[in-house]
Write a protein that binds this DNA or RNA. Structure first.
Lengths: 123, 123
DNA sequence: GTTCCCCTTTACGTTAACGTAAAGGATAAA
DNA sequence: TTTATCCTTTACGTTAACGTAAAGGGGAAC
């Protein structure tokens, strides 16, 4: 990270998050992130970094890139958008929440099973 | 489900879980499940059904089929197996647990963000 | 001035997880 | 006995998420 400008190169972020520059470029191809440019070089700011974090968190949870794009696009909506649009987003949020609740349940179940497995293995 | 024999056909299970027979056959190709046969027909019993549930739960959490196979194989290990093998499994269990804890964190964070998003949208 | 290192784009390759079509066997209903 | 409805296997197709290689630009170090 460049301390003067508070910016990052693509490999700065790649190293920090343990991924490849190729992945980051791929996220850009998929419209998940759009850094500034200095000529042809990509320049990432704090906001881009946070966005990348959000992408990777979504991935860990198991969301696809297009699902993540959907979530990100909700962030980008203006606060008091169109009525229809707002309703649409609220429904999307509900959907996401339901999926996440289901996942929480699944994880709890799986953790309990791991406990039983471990107990069996250690007598 | 056949009430006499307490067995299921492949499409019975497919319908119940909202997937296709093809998927179930694929899980069999990948050694995740291995039903009995009556001639060439697959016959699924309670145990197979539970196994399928486990597979689908793993999928919802975001595990790959080979990760799920790894988990399933832990179930199949005898209780008092070899020393080395047991240690290996215990480490695997720890890994899984860590990943699941991370996911729990990620989900909490994401849920909180959804709350803030919703609040913003509804003023 | 050339070597090095990082960046770029273009483009074809790869893997996972199935989808889909083709061709045929078995059983039950009409 | 034909028609329908399941089942089977084989095999090629598809999509997502990158990997990887090729070819080249730009600046710093020697």
């Amino acid at each position: 990270m460049n301390d003067k400008t508070n910016t990052y190169s693509i490999s700065d972020l790649a190293k920090e998050f343990g991924i490849t520059p190729r992945s980051i470029r791929h996220y850009e191809d998929e419209k998940l992130i759009s850094p500034e440019r200095n000529g042809s070089q990509r320049i990432y700011r704090k906001g881009d970094r946070i966005r990348l974090q959000l992408i990777l968190r979504g991935k860990r949870i198991g969301f696809s890139l297009s699902e993540i794009r959907e979530i990100i696009s909700m962030y980008d909506e203006p606060s008091g958008g169109e009525e229809k649009q707002t309703e649409f987003l609220l429904r999307k949020i509900e959907e996401r929440r339901d999926a996440l609740y289901q996942q929480q349940q699944d994880i709890k179940t799986m953790l309990a099973e791991l406990d039983r497995l471990e107990a069996r293995l250690t007598q």
